[in-house]
Design a protein around this nucleic acid. Sequence first.
RNA 1: GCGGCGGUGGUGGAACGGUAGACACGAUGGACUCAAAAUCCAUUGUCCUUCGGGACGUGUGGGUUCGAAUCCCACCCGCCGUACCA
Length: 826
Amino acid sequence: MSDRRYAPSEIEPKWQQLWARERTWEVANDPDHAADHSYVLEMLPYPSGEPHVGHLKNYALGDAIAHYRRRTGHRVLHPMGYDAFGLPAENNAIKTGVHPRVATDKSIASYRHWFHRWGISIDWSRELSTHEPSYYRWTQWIFLKFYERGLAYRKEAAVKWCPFDQTVLANEQVIDGRCERCGHEVELRQLEQWFFRITEYADRLLEDLDTIHWPEHVKAMQRNWIGRSEGAEVVFRCDALATDYTVFTTRPDTLFGATFFVMAPEHPDVFRLVAGTEHEAAVHEYVNRALTESAEARGDADKPKTGVPLGRTVTNPVNGEQLPMFVADYVLMEYGTGAVMGVPAHDQRDYEFARAFDLPIRPVVAPADAEDPDVSEQAFTAHTEHEKLINSGEFSGMDAVAGRNAIVARLDAEGRGRPSVNYRLRDWLISRQRYWGCPIPMVYCGQCGLVPVPEDQLPVQLPEIEDYQPRGKSPLAAAEDWVNTTCPSCGGPARRETDTMDTFVDSSWYYLRYCDPRNDRAAWDRRVLDSWMPVDTYIGGVEHAILHLLYSRFFVKALADMDLIGVQEPFRTLFTQGMILGPDGNKMSSSKGNVVAPSQIVERFGADAARCYVLFMGPLEQDAAWSDNGVQGVHKFLTRLWRLGDGLAEEAGPGPAPQPPAPEGDALGLVRKANWAINKVTGDIRDRWSFNTAISAVMELVNEVYLHLDADLEARRFAVATAASLVFPFAPHLGSEVYEQLTGERVWEQPWPDADPEMLVTPTFMLVCQVNGKVRDRVEAPTGAAREELEELAMAARGVQAHLNGHQVVKVIVVPDKLVNIVVKA
RNA sequence: GCGGCGGUGGUGGAACGGUAGACACGAUGGACUCAAAAUCCAUUGUCCUUCGGGACGUGUGGGUUCGAAUCCCACCCGCCGUACCA
């Protein structure tokens, strides 16, 4: 072998330049032949600084799939873009005065550079960025479509406000009562804001989860987030004010156990109920304190129950009892109707409230094996068909399920209630009081009111400003020249909407634009779109499980309802990759000083080693800690493969490397191993997303060649060419290099190899011989031998004989081509 | 609380009812070197051993099975999501 060395720094740029020059990965739209289309997509990056190792894993993973699909006969769409609007760039602008576009574009250039340097097979002709007017023009167009259809609307509501970022947030962006961006506690504010009516799609978003191939935990998170509860609405009348109050309950079976009634502090009727009474002062004080408390403190389930009486009563519709009314902060305005019936015997929160206020606790559901439930310590919450109703008038004696249905049916008949479904999901608040986002294309006219900007006047361009500091309203409000406009309807003076859209709006449809990215007459051509959609394979981090992934599903359903797209779901198959942790096992962060920069790894070991290593670390969906030794190990493997290729090129020169016709001895062993590897790698990629074991199979093949360096040349050439071909999806530069050295061909133009079935079986195998399930020997046996023959061979095996010694054979289990288990009596 | 996912060598992990520990890291010994790096070879679950082999081993306890890391039941521990959601 020569003393030349594997030099990724020379090999890799060579192939990268060739792919760029020849535009190898570009794919033209061809809606007439949609059948073989495959859309492989990784979540688009938010460009900030340089890409990190998580990006490397994400794109290496998707790229392997894309390469595999291409070589199995698909036209593969594999595009790239940037989610370019957003707070970090804007906050940076506030600090430095540099326009967010400048910092963003710089970062995009870095990401673009590294995607090239990693050799990711991207169709660069479709590159897009959400901050370009050519993109956000269509974001605005979709907004107008939603507006037309009543899916975008403005309303005043109690919304989450981040005092640090000076903007409102969507529910999904509040984590544990804090802003997901900056970590500050959010406040509730009563503001008029723009919403998307995602709640209208709650049921379909829930049901259609059954139609897509997504990880169970992601589906579970979406189900939880949507939070569908079945129950009933029940009307409680307050005679003093001649007002009906409706509550939502999942436990109508417990209606006879209601002993009080509670309203949320935000409930609009609270002050009216106490106006002019002795309770007025106390209620005002309580409500004001509750409203100023932080969301986090108020949300603590462990804190003792508090509240104050309203001095009024409502009538329980099932038995006419008068229930005392309270206001208490454990009742939330944003769920249900903002009022609940209190059933202390069967709800733990009501139980705690009743104990604190010395209210009666009346059990109405009993376990199957007792007269009464034990409510001396806590509420009794079971309510299956095994529990029975007690103290419930004519319903006493029924089981809890039948009783519940009967009670709801009677309320329904009397007009005092009905079956009902409630959701936890709230409408999506999309307006933001910030600069660096997509302008909302609406104007306010003194004459005409709220007027949409006509489609032919899009895009509403984001104006240049100098002061990005948010002051409780959008910095855009200061751009007077821009704000003042004319009404598209009457031509009179009007003012533009100054809020911008949540950046999740931008990323809710980018995968549609990739299909037809240069179309300047429409957001997309419907035929082209339908030929690519849905995305066949979508890859990204699990952190988007209920933000981006739910919003995108909503978008597609809404667009489908407007007949703008032909699918109901955007992403047929989803794969969520695990995080790469720092070498210390912690999440990478600059403050911990455990950040591994891909640039350094690529410099030391090459892009192929970096890519292979992140896929080899363990199962792709799992988190895994970075190990420098691990990368070195993968680099060693690639070096060994390269040296085999280099040596064979010197020995034989380029030419076809087919499977030799009738190999024998070591050569046969190599040919078999190569076919085994083809079979293993193919299955691992196609059926299991098991790239770590796929790569280990190629390692085994390479090791096998090293153990048989004196085998026939043709067998070695076949084995090494096969290894290069199989490693190509993971290490495309090295795969291309070795394959070309051996054969003179471009590996990506070769079809994915097929295993020769004859080479997957051997004439003999090692028969495992067990006695009572314990392995006692292994003997060589002919493949396909009859059960009797295998039984005889096993019986005769030395290790078996030693353990039979006189015991009576009770039974013999034979698994053909695998094992024999002899069962003996002890 | 609720929902989801996991507990296998010194480490990351293989094995999806049939040989537990593939592949890799680390470690130990050796070869090649003046030396180091690189490379190559051997050994590497634990404990016994007369060196043939034997016993024990996949969080714990039961069960199903000829056979269980794998399936079932109960429990313990860990991670992730979510939570006064009525």
